[in-house]
């Protein structure tokens, strides 16, 4: 029986898989970096059954009105990552000049100032510093921007309400992975399941 020469077979496999595996390989490296050398106040991991979909938490930076908040986000990657940024969305309700009502962000590095040298850790760190330093000149939430400029006391009060809300986010509000499974198990268990998922990707 005729056999396909190995190099042709390999090339066919490459055609079929290369684009998506490139992106997955990079995401596995991102996850490794995020778990071995995590920047303070952020955490994130891919869904156990879909590495293109990540859940993340940003802890509100100290000495800002966001302090003590646990803000959940979902990051959706497509095959052009890292040449294209992921879609990033807050799942927790936010009150911030640069966050739209639907949770999407107005952040230059996720739009026209994206660079393929950014990784998940860099994205989450940038968002964390956006909480610190809102940019009221390109408002996504006009009310938040106005209060930030003109009525700091009321701005702080409104933000603090979202901080308390962030602790109560019910699982079924999370549309990311594992509806109902991920967060209730607590960070250690979900980190563990992510590691298991990481090792299964490596074996693959």
């Amino acid at each position: 029986m005729a056999r396909l020469p190995a190099n042709i077979l390999e090339r066919l496999l490459n055609l079929r898989f290369s684009q998506s595996t490139n992106c997955k390989r990079r995401l596995i490296r991102d996850f490794k970096r995020l778990s071995t050398d995590p920047p303070g106040g952020i955490s994130g991991s891919p869904c156990p059954d879909n590495i293109m979909l990540w859940n993340a938490v940003i802890f509100g930076p100290a000495e800002t009105p966001f302090e003590d908040g646990t803000f959940k986000l979902v990051l959706t990657f497509d095959e052009s990552y890292p040449n294209k940024p992921p879609t990033v969305k807050f799942l927790s309700r936010m009150f911030h000049p640069n966050v739209y009502a639907n949770g999407e962000l107005c952040l230059d590095i996720l739009q026209n100032r994206w660079s393929p040298t950014y990784d998940v850790a860099a994205i989450l760190t940038s968002i964390q510093s956006l909480l610190h330093d809102p940019n009221p000149n390109s408002p996504a939430n006009a009310e938040a921007a106005q209060l930030y400029r003109e009525n700091m006391k009321e701005y702080v009060r409104r933000v603090k309400a979202t901080v308390e809300e962030s602790w109560l986010d019910p699982d079924d509000k999370l549309e990311g992975c594992g509806r109902g499974a991920g967060w209730r198990r607590g960070p250690i268990l979900s980190l563990w399941s992510s590691l298991v998922c990481l090792s299964s990707y490596v074996i693959m």
Binding site: N14, S18, T21, N22, R25, R29, R33, P116
Partner: peptide
């Protein structure tokens, strides 16, 4: 490599 994060001495993710 700052883009794919694979060592220079390795290859880009599209190569074997």
């Amino acid at each position: 490599c700052g883009i794919c994060r694979v060592p220079y001495e390795g290859c880009c993710p599209s190569c074997k």
